[in-house]
Each structure stands twice: as C-alpha cells, then as structure tokens.
Design a protein around this nucleic acid. Sequence first.
DNA 1: AGAACTAATTAACAAAAGATAATTAATTAC
DNA 2: GTAATTAATTATCTTTTGTTAATTAGTTCT
Lengths: 197, 197
Amino acid sequence: MLTFERLKKIYQFGKNLSPTDLHAFIKHTHSQEFGQGEIIFPEGSTNDNVYFINKGLIRIFTFNENGDEITFRIVAEGQIFANADYLFYNKASRFTFEALEDTKVHFISYEDLQAVLDRNIKLEKNRKFALLSLLKESNERVESFVLMTPEERYLSFVKKFPSINNRVKDKHLASVLGITPVSLSRIRKRISQKQND
Amino acid sequence: MLTFERLKKIYQFGKNLSPTDLHAFIKHTHSQEFGQGEIIFPEGSTNDNVYFINKGLIRIFTFNENGDEITFRIVAEGQIFANADYLFYNKASRFTFEALEDTKVHFISYEDLQAVLDRNIKLEKNRKFALLSLLKESNERVESFVLMTPEERYLSFVKKFPSINNRVKDKHLASVLGITPVSLSRIRKRISQKQND
DNA sequence: AGAACTAATTAACAAAAGATAATTAATTAC
DNA sequence: GTAATTAATTATCTTTTGTTAATTAGTTCT
C-alpha cells in the first residue's frame, strides 16, 4: 500500500481521497516485477492494463520500415503507461514494452479501472489528474519538436530528466528525440566544444 | 443548443447524458464569434476558458528567438482548445490565439466547468472523453515526429485534414510540421515529381 | 484595374542530418 | 581476465534542411 505514496504525490491521487477511497482503488490493482530486459508485453498485444511504475524504467519501441528499432517513449518511476493502440483505438499494439531496469509496476485492467471509478465518485474526480499529467507530458513533447532544434531538445530532455544519461542508452534516447544515434553523438560533441570556449 | 450536436458526436458528450444533464452544462457556456484575423486572446493572457470550436479555424502561435512566427497548433471545428500555459501551469500564455476564418466558439470558464462537473456526476464521467480526445491528438503528433520523416508527416497531416491546403497558409502549416516554409515548398515539389514518374 | 502587400517558389550556399562503414570504448559472457 | 558482443564515436559521403535573397504568384486595398 505504501507503494502508492509517490502516485498520491504526483497525480494528486488522494488529495481529496479518504484512505477508504484510496483502498477501494488499490484493492483492484496488482503488482508485478520485471527484470532488466524483460518484455512487459510485445507488439501485437491486446493487453488492456493501465500501469504505474513504482520503481525502474521501461521503453516502448517498434521497428521502422528498414527494420531499425525506434524507441517511442521512455517511462520512469512515477509515470503511467498503457497500451495506447488498444485503449485508444482497440487495435493490437504496434509497440513492444520492455523493462530497461529491474522494474516494479502496479496495474489495473481498464475494465476494473472503469468499474471502480464508476462506483466511486471521488476516484472518478481524481481521474483527471492522471489524464492531465499524460496530456501535459505529451504536449511538452510536441512543443519540443515544434519550437526547438534537436540540440535544444536534447538539452531540454536532459534537464528534465537528469539521470537519463546513466540509465538509458544513447541510441534509445536518440530515437525518443527523433534523431539518429550518430546525430546525437555529433550534437553532444558540438555541445562540449561550445563549453570549451 | 443545437450547436452542441457535433460536440455530442465527437466527444461522446451526451452518450450517457440525459437532455437535462446536457442542459446543466450548456447553460453555463457562452458563445462568441470572431472574424477572420481577430485575436481570441493574446500572448500574456490569463484567459481560463475552455473553448469548443463550432465553426471555423484558429491558430495558436508565438515568436521564436529570431522574431519569426511559429504556429504551434491549428484547431478546427469540433475540436477543443484552451490556454494550456494557464490551465496546466498557472502561467501567462506564451501563445496568441487567432481566428483564421470567421469562427464561432462555445466556451466555459474553467471555474464554471469544474463547478458544473462537481455537481453532476454524469458530466464528470464524460470529462474523460474530452481529455482522451486531446491526448490522442497530442500523442499522434508526437508519433508523427518520432516515426516519420517531414515528408511523411506532411502527407499524413494532409490525409488527416484534407481541407488544410485550402484553409491554412503553407507557412503556418510548415511550422506545425516543425519545418520552414521553404522546406515545405521543396517537399511539395519532391512529391509532385515522384507522382510524375 | 492597378498599386501595394503578402505568400510561395526558386536559387545559392552553409549547416545539419541521414546512411554506411570503420574505429574505439564499454559491456557482457564465458 | 580475456574474448565476444554491443554501444558510441568518428569519418566519409549524400541528402535534406536552414538561411537569405530574388523572383513569381496571389491577395488585398483603394
């Protein structure tokens, strides 16, 4: 139960919730641990869970037409992820979800989530915090593509997520930034040259 | 009142709502019309309304460090927009909101929206449709940046919004796609050359 | 209709990015 | 600890984009 402390803080879950309300939710959730490199669910999956990362790091990736891996998103502790292809469009996942570190998640099936929230108005009212958190993150990413150069986007990403360089391979980070690993390497070089002026 | 028919369809507002519930919402909304070129609210604004476009088209733009206009988003009939800087972060808007066509909107202040939804559980439950719709749109845009080349992104945008070429200036479309107008012009040329093969 | 203004295209060049391969660094496996 | 593997950097070359300016096309205003 204690594992939801971070969730409460970040998504304001529990802000207006009594321990009873919170428990109504938590009792429908499950926990699971994945070792580094383990697949949480693969491309083609119709997994319908909504996951919350308690500890660890995952990446969501697919392959482009050349067969190269493209990492679409990296999700760390305190964040939510789900099979968007299935939950948004009722389609099989185009992406594979992989644990990059030993990762502990909490999850609830969308069906159960909906049922619990239908029964508890306080929980339903808290739903917006989770959705807004996802919307903010997504919107900030769109901004980084429209308003910034790749170099600025890289710097901004590192600033927002300082431990990224130790935790995520450059090639994965590169595709999250919409560039190639070679280009990321050159950007890093350019930045370090600027600092030596 | 009829003006909400589109909203009902698109956001499933009213799917589970009685006319009474719907009316509870609608009576707190206001309508407004903007002529082509009119500013809905400017950079620096703390406008806190949530807008629904009934008819017309708007663009959300700012200026980069060189003083060039950057159009961040184009919003057409059936879609929602709001002052994200203010509603998400309680900051003054970095963007100006301008009507690109004669535009009719419905809006409700966030305060009123929250109050109405607090009082009506059916409306609160419908909130997710609006938020999910925004999240889907934003997520699809991130995908278009991570998974596609600018050329593919352009083609995909036109496919999703076929009237765009008649309704939006290329220079505005270009920055929505994260490229310069010159580059968009070249992309169009390349595409038309391919078609002549 | 013509003038004035704005948008889109084209040209020319510089800068950055993609692709591929070679090299170096780092990690993993035995 | 060394070999094998994988990741990151560097090099080379091609393609694309950005920048600026000139030209052409299209709009708007009177």
